[in-house]
Design a protein around this nucleic acid. Structure first.
Lengths: 240, 240
DNA sequence: CGGGGCATTGAGTTGAGTCAACAACCGTGG
DNA sequence: CCACGGTTGTTGACTCAACTCAATGCCCCG
């Protein structure tokens, strides 16, 4: 099987055998997590970053009154907390939405790479920049778009991101977030997410069965969401 | 005068003379911008990134219906679009809120640095990670907090960030955003921003005169906003 | 077969938006 | 030095998208 990290990075340009070997080397400490458990606890100061090999995870923060906001979603191939390499202290946590498999990558290995492999360093940096671009889009959606557009947008985004990793089969994909989690991500109440999904279903844009989602009318969905995948920078090429 | 970029980076750890010289070298192409003009136009593919030397700027994106969302604020010492070094295509624009002075740093210089100066590379990377952390906090605030808390939060954040660069005098600072811009940043209407500011004023938390803001009761303001400055990572130390 | 998550529904409430004036301020040119 | 026009700030009246609360239904898993 292709290594998810190598696959993710090679979307941006080819790696040398040497570089691939390094990536395999640093990611051989594999752990698993049950759904609803923390991959990273809020406030942790880890000596490693966590690479998601399988499953879907969410970065979240919690307020004093118990309200929660999910600020990012991560899928196979994503480094869920690569930023902790330089920021050290996580100001939020990362939770498994589905059962997850992940590799722990030691910060000292990343430090070593950043001195010896400039191209890999830029690739890692790029991954965090793409995270940031996605986060800014989420901010914009929450700040200015209707509930319907927000839901449509996240479905489009997930379709693309999972599709990139080969996890979409004829317009359908598994998306393990509950309606409550979707609400926490989109700044909506559970009830309103429910009603919005019903609307999208009855308008024939999507179909859901359990946690499986099928997009029936991509064009209309993308149009309503004003979705334009360039912000995902999936194939942004990196210079050597 | 101390170079703003060197000052910003040295908050995270000392630089060698050699590194400082490099930073000065790459940032000698200085340009000025009037308020309300674009430092970077949406969709630009620049060959350089823009370092803000003076003034306040905002990253924004616009929707088809004319709605605007401001996704980040930048102050002296910030690289407003360092991410364009690797992402190339800007999916949003950056606008001067006040008159600005900025240096254009060629991407080829950054590429060179990323091969030769690992520490500077990590420092630049760190700057973009801090941007991301701030952006996630904004997402959380917009998604889950009341108008009053959002406004209070942004005032706390600006107080800290401007304070870091020595731009606060006894609790007061210049913050050039109009109420409309504040609304576009916080996902609120202009009218509601206005009413919220009035509330904060009449509750004795802040005072405003023109674009100058004074914080009269920092403790209560920070408490209401649940503000905790650690996410700014202002003094996060970098390993050599 | 029973319990715990989730999803769904209905009814009533509200924070924030919209629209439309109007006032205050500011730079500019005559 | 003042008149003017544009931008920004303020106010009031009304509306509505989304929230809350509280049931109820559903389904999966042990």
């Amino acid at each position: 099987m292709v290594h998810p990290l190598i696959a993710a990075i090679e979307k941006h340009g080819p790696l040398t055998e040497d570089e691939k070997a390094v990536l395999r080397d640093i990611s051989d400490d594999v752990v698993t997590f049950a759904a609803k458990t923390d991959l990273v606890r809020p406030g942790d100061e880890c000596a490693y970053s966590t690479l998601l090999l399988d499953g879907v995870a969410a970065r979240y923060s919690t307020f004093a009154d118990g309200q929660r906001q999910i600020s990012a979603l991560h899928v196979t191939g994503d480094f869920v907390d690569l930023h902790s390499f330089l920021l050290k202290k996580m100001d939020d946590g990362v939770m498994a939405l589905s059962p997850c498999r992940a590799a722990r990558v030691a910060h000292k290995d990343l430090l070593e790479i950043s001195g010896r492999y400039p191209y890999l360093t830029r690739a890692f940096w790029l991954m965090t920049l793409i995270d940031g671009a996605i986060s800014r889009h989420l901010t914009a959606a929450i700040g200015r778009r209707s509930a319907r557009q927000r839901v449509a947008h996240i479905l489009c985004e997930m379709h693309c991101r999972l599709g990139n990793m080969g996890l979409v089969r004829n317009g359908g994909f598994d998306f393990p977030a509950t309606q409550e989690e979707l609400g926490d991500m989109l700044g909506l109440s559970t009830v309103h997410v429910n009603r919005t999904l019903q609307e999208l279903r009855s308008d024939g844009l999507i179909a859901t069965s359990g946690r499986h989602i099928e997009i029936h009318d991509w064009d209309r969905l993308a149009e309503e969401a004003e979705f334009d995948a360039t912000y995902l920078h999936s194939y942004q090429q990196l210079e050597r």
